[in-house]
């Protein structure tokens, strides 16, 4: 086998971490998820309401359906990943933010996860009339 016959190809430019490629692919996949869910989200909150004022009761009634909850949760997760990957790319290319790939995973993973939990918590009052914090 001639694979990896280049000395040092696993060194400094050995492609970085294995997930670098998947992180990029996921950026594209989440883009597709956001397109589908954002259209449903906008449709349900604006057009289907026929211009009525958005109110807590109205949104709460809609969010009793598991399908609509799923749309919002999917949108939240996909949009957060997509946004963080994009912002991180901009910062990286400007020489800002954590510059080691491992720090990237730790820092942006933590930011993304906390934002996701915060977002879920914001949805809870509509679905169950409770929230954790």
């Amino acid at each position: 086998m001639r694979e990896n016959g280049i000395p040092g190809s696993k060194g400094k430019f050995g492609g970085g971490p294995a997930w670098g490629l998947w992180a990029w692919v996921l950026q594209r996949l989440t883009a597709a998820v956001v397109v589908v869910t954002i259209i449903m989200h906008l449709w349900l909150t604006h057009w289907a309401q026929a211009g009525r004022e958005i109110s807590f009761d109205e949104v709460s009634r809609r969010l009793q359906s598991p399908l609509f909850v799923a749309v919002d949760v999917l949108l939240l997760g996909a949009a957060l990943y997509h946004a963080l990957y994009g912002v991180r790319g901009i910062l990286w290319e400007l020489g800002l933010g954590p510059q080691a790939p491992r720090l990237f995973l730790a820092f942006y993973g933590l930011v993304g996860l906390s934002a996701f939990i915060y977002g879920l918590n914001a949805l809870l009052p509509f679905v169950f009339k409770i929230s954790f914090f």
């Binding site: 280049i6 190809s9 696993k10 050995g14 970085g16 790319g89 790939p101």
Partner: peptide, 15 residues
């Protein structure tokens, strides 16, 4: 594959 590995990564293709 080895050459792709050289071009991949944070300072390569994804930029």
């Amino acid at each position: 594959d080895a050459r792709l590995a050289l071009a991949l990564g944070e300072d390569g293709l994804w930029r």
